[in-house]
């Protein structure tokens, strides 16, 4: 398989995402397309990651966890970036679409982050001998999940939809801005503790498989966010729907 394949698929997926964002008629079927691409890529991915890609020099076969672990952490970051954008957008212009999208992206981001951190811990066991070694990446990701679990809790604790949307937007911005500071603080704190670094690889085959997995998880992320958005948006519509008290002529 040509090494460029995953990049080409990625371009297609991004194009479809843009179409989904800007062309309303696409929205009815786009999730099925994402799901279809994801399923096909998921079927091929084990072959690529477990057999086709070479084992890494130092870590051997265990390094193959990377193809699952790294893309999912990326997806978490991507989802939380979307959450930040929606939070800013909501404060600039009130809209239930951005509010529901913020809710959806935060939850899906927490989901991918949690799976990513779990896989990181599984990877840590054979390479470092323990499940948790205060690796800055892993620690930052874990705190990040806790922060956004707080965000989701706040959403659940405020009944008024307007207040919930505004406050959670404020919290979304504050949380996202915290992430780089968190990263540096944990890294410096850790650098005094011990030097730990995950091996990087420049092997083109590995890069290809990593890109393949990333594109595959991007499709999955899109499917999850689209559906979580529908759940959130329907809930919002039910909350803010004018009741019969507001029916025309009632006044």
């Amino acid at each position: 398989m040509p090494l460029i394949t995953p990049l080409l698929i990625l371009v297609g997926v991004v194009g479809l995402l843009l179409a989904h964002a800007f062309v309303p008629s696409v929205r009815r079927w786009s999730w099925k397309a994402f799901l279809g691409i994801a399923v096909v890529m998921f079927l091929v991915q084990p072959y690529l990651a477990l057999s086709w890609a070479p084992p890494e020099r130092e870590m051997g076969e265990v390094q193959r966890i990377m193809y699952m672990h790294v893309p999912q952490v990326w997806m978490a970051l991507l989802a939380l970036t979307l959450n930040f954008c929606c939070s800013v957008a909501f404060l600039l212009k009130k809209s239930w679409v951005t509010d529901a999208l913020a809710e959806a992206s935060a939850e899906v981001g927490v989901y991918f982050g949690a799976v990513g951190v779990t896989l990181g811990a599984i990877w840590a066991k054979p390479t470092w001998g323990v499940y948790w070694d205060w690796d800055p990446r892993l620690t930052t990701a874990a705190i990040m999940i806790v922060i956004y679990m707080g965000y989701l809790t706040l959403r659940r604790f405020v009944e008024d939809p307007e207040k919930r949307a505004t406050w959670s937007s404020v919290m979304g911005i504050i949380s996202y801005v915290d992430l780089p500071v968190l990263w540096f603080s944990v890294k410096w704190w850790n650098s005094l503790h011990q030097v730990q670094s995950s091996p990087k690889t420049v092997d083109p085959d590995m890069t290809m498989v990593l890109r393949w997995s990333a594109t595959m998880f991007l499709c999955l992320l899109s499917v999850f966010i689209i559906h979580r958005f529908r759940v959130a948006y329907a809930a919002r519509q039910a909350e803010v729907a004018p009741p019969e008290a507001l029916a025309p002529g009632a006044a």
Partner: peptide, 30 residues
């Protein structure tokens, strides 16, 4: 880091860490 291999399918090396497939499977299961 070892010099990267450019031929697809060729083993970069055996890896000092032998085995560990159960961790890979665990990651897929999760």
């Amino acid at each position: 880091l070892p010099p990267p291999s450019s031929t697809p399918g060729q083993m970069v090396g055996r890896g000092r860490l032998v085995g560990g497939w159960e961790y890979v499977w665990a990651s897929y299961i999760v």
